[in-house]
Structure formats: structure tokens, C-alpha cells
């Protein structure tokens, strides 16, 4: 399992649009189904009547900015936070009455690490296995295998405290796998990590996905959502504002390409009207203008013809960031 990390997770190919799940899975009963799911804290509504389903083997994402209600949703799915209103079924069980049974089949990676810093890396796995009632020898066997899987085998005897953020995250993922969960819940698995650590983590998660583990994850990184999710919902202000595969969402809410124009300070404000009609949609951000079109280069040429000369021009493909901007009028990451 110590193969190189060169194998970058490849986002689902575009041709597979919408068909990223084998047909057999589509007909299987959902592992999670939510109808009008609501979470209130006193009179504040953190999750406001959302509907979604997660099929076996799927990698399903909640994409949204801070405060959108992602963690509140995940904690209801994880059966550690009671549902305020609406219907929620997990593994065909009722979280109100069967919390411990449901939890015995989940693998949870919480937003904040909950490792025991006073125990060693390996002991953290052993004791976690015991929480699920696994025999000690089985815990030991799985712990060693999981340490290999998350590339921490040489740190097994070390205390958790001095580990880097990325290593702690990998250990938390290993820990969440000790009970061989039917469903993994990952709340912002890579937030706060440097790019290298994030890629390493994505690689491990991608492997789990290939092995048929059902992943439910939250993120406010659009690249993470694009890399890992077969299907996702965009959450904003306690509500779901869109649902689909990353490609579907981009196709539905954005154009194929985007031309980004940056101007010298003050120039952007003097443009009024000059850009009109150049692209199918134009977004003016404080520091740049986004022109949405299927062919970005064409937009750039047309702009030059009109005598518009931006300081910098970038033509790129649309991303989920553009989808979010279109849906909410705001950027994902502030």
C-alpha cells in the first residue's frame, strides 16, 4: 500500500456526466434520505427544511460557505444532534430511536479533531475499535492495516500531540474506518491544510471511494467538491440552492468558459455599459470582471475590437465557484 502518490485523483470524466453511478446503485434503497430536514437552535434556524438522498457507493457533497448549516446537517446524520423537524432516515433506521445502532455503522471525521493527545497514534485506533465492541486482536489487526493505509505506520508508537495537522487528519480518517463503516461522514476533511497535505488526503479518500465506501462530505472548497463528489448540493443560508453532479451544475448554472478581466484601480468603474453584450452573463467583482461564454477567447477578441484593454486577462473553464456566485451573488470563500 506504499505506492507513490503520483496517482492524482481524477475527477469523473465529463462524458460520464450524470452516469457516474452504475445503474444498479441507482435502484438500491438510499443510505440516507432527508425530507424537510430542519435544525433549530432556540429560535435560530441553522438548517431549514432540506431534502436529499444519498445512494450506496456514492460520494455526496455539501458545498457551502461558513455558517451555511453543513456541520449542523452532518451532526444530525451522525445521530449526535437531534432532528428539530422533518424526516431523516439513515441506513433505513430512525435516528430518534436507533442512534447507537446507526452510529455503530458510521465512520465520522468531525470538523475539529477529537483525538486523544495523551495516547499514541496506534492506541487511538485501538481504543476507538473497542468503542465499537471489536475484540482486541481484531482492533490490533485493523489498526496496523489502517496505519499503513494512511501512511502513518512509522508513527504508530508516537504520541498524537506533535503530529502535523495533515497527519492528525489522516489518523482521524483511519480511526473512522476501524469499524468498517457503511457510510463515512467527513466534515471539512482538508480545511486548514497546506496543498500537499490536502492532495495526500484526497488521494486516500479517492481510494476509499473506489473501494465502494459511501462518502458524505462537506467542504467550502470548490476544487475539493469537484475532485471528490459524484453529486453535491450547494448550501447557502440553511437551504439547498442547487443539486447535481459538478459537471451538471456547471452546465446548468454557468457557461463552459469564463474570461476574467482585471483593470488598473479606478478603470473598472469607468467602463459602464462598454462590456454589455460581450458575453452571455457578466459579473462585476470588486477586483475583476467575469465574462461568461462558451468560448472565452472570442470574448477577449471582441473586447479588444471595442477598444477595451484590461491590465490582465485570464480565460479558464467554469468551476463550482462560478456556480455559487451565480446562485448566491457571493463568493464561496471570503
Amino acid at each position: 500500500m506504499h505506492d507513490s502518490l503520483a496517482t492524482e485523483p481524477t475527477p469523473a470524466v465529463e462524458e460520464a456526466l450524470g452516469a457516474s453511478r452504475p445503474a444498479a446503485r441507482a435502484s438500491a434503497p438510499p443510505l440516507i434520505s432527508a425530507r424537510g430536514l430542519t435544525k433549530r437552535f432556540d429560535d435560530f434556524t441553522a438548517v431549514d427544511g432540506i431534502d436529499f438522498e444519498v445512494a450506496p457507493g456514492e460520494a455526496f457533497g455539501f458545498l457551502g460557505p461558513n455558517g451555511a448549516g453543513k456541520t449542523s446537517t452532518m451532526r444530525m446524520i451522525g445521530c449526535t444532534s437531534p432532528v428539530s423537524d422533518g424526516e431523516l432516515r439513515i441506513l433505513d433506521m430512525d435516528p430518534r430511536r436507533q442512534g447507537p445502532q446507526i452510529r455503530s455503522r458510521l465512520g465520522v471525521v468531525p470538523q475539529q479533531d477529537t483525538l486523544d493527545n495523551e495516547l499514541t497514534v496506534r492506541e487511538n485506533l485501538l481504543i476507538y475499535g473497542r468503542y465499537f465492541g471489536l475484540p482486541r486482536e481484531e482492533c490490533a489487526r485493523r489498526a496496523d492495516e489502517l496505519l499503513d493505509f494512511v501512511q502513518l505506520a512509522d508513527r504508530g508508537k508516537d504520541l498524537v500531540e506533535p503530529l502535523s495537522g495533515g497527519m492528525k487528519r489522516r489518523l482521524t480518517i483511519a480511526r473512522s474506518l476501524i469499524n468498517e463503516p457503511s457510510l463515512m461522514l467527513l466534515d471539512e476533511p482538508t480545511t486548514g491544510l497546506d496543498p500537499q497535505a490536502r492532495h495526500l488526503l484526497w488521494d486516500r479518500l479517492y481510494r476509499l471511494k473506489q473501494r465502494g465506501v459511501t462518502l458524505v462530505l462537506t467542504t467550502h472548497y470548490m476544487d475539493e467538491a469537484e475532485q471528490l463528489c459524484d453529486r453535491l448540493v450547494v448550501m447557502d443560508k440553511a437551504k439547498i440552492v442547487a443539486e447535481g453532479s459538478p459537471q451538471q451544475l456547471i452546465q446548468r448554472y454557468s457557461t463552459r468558459e469564463v474570461a476574467e478581466f482585471r483593470f488598473l484601480p479606478g478603470v473598472q468603474e469607468t467602463l459602464d455599459g462598454k462590456l454589455d453584450g460581450l458575453a452571455s452573463r457578466i459579473e462585476k467583482l470588486p477586483d475583476r470582471v467575469l465574462l461568461y461564454a462558451d468560448d472565452g477567447e472570442e470574448v477577449v477578441m471582441a473586447a479588444r475590437e471595442r477598444g477595451i484593454h484590461p491590465e490582465a486577462v485570464l480565460v479558464r473553464r467554469s468551476t463550482l465557484e462560478d456556480v455559487f456566485l451565480r446562485l448566491t451573488g457571493r463568493s464561496l470563500v471570503d
Binding site: A28, P56, Q101, R105, G133, R211, G212, V213, T214
Partner: peptide
Amino acid sequence: SFLDAREPAGIGRVPPLAPSWST
């Protein structure tokens, strides 16, 4: 390996709720 490729876990069997003393 217990991590080996397998079919996506479906709804499957519900394990009995362990008695309180063991938890």
C-alpha cells in the same frame, strides 16, 4: 484485507444494541 474492494455497503443487517454495561 478488511479494506479490500467490495460492493458498496447497502442497508444491511442491524447489529444488536450492546448492553449498557459493556459500553
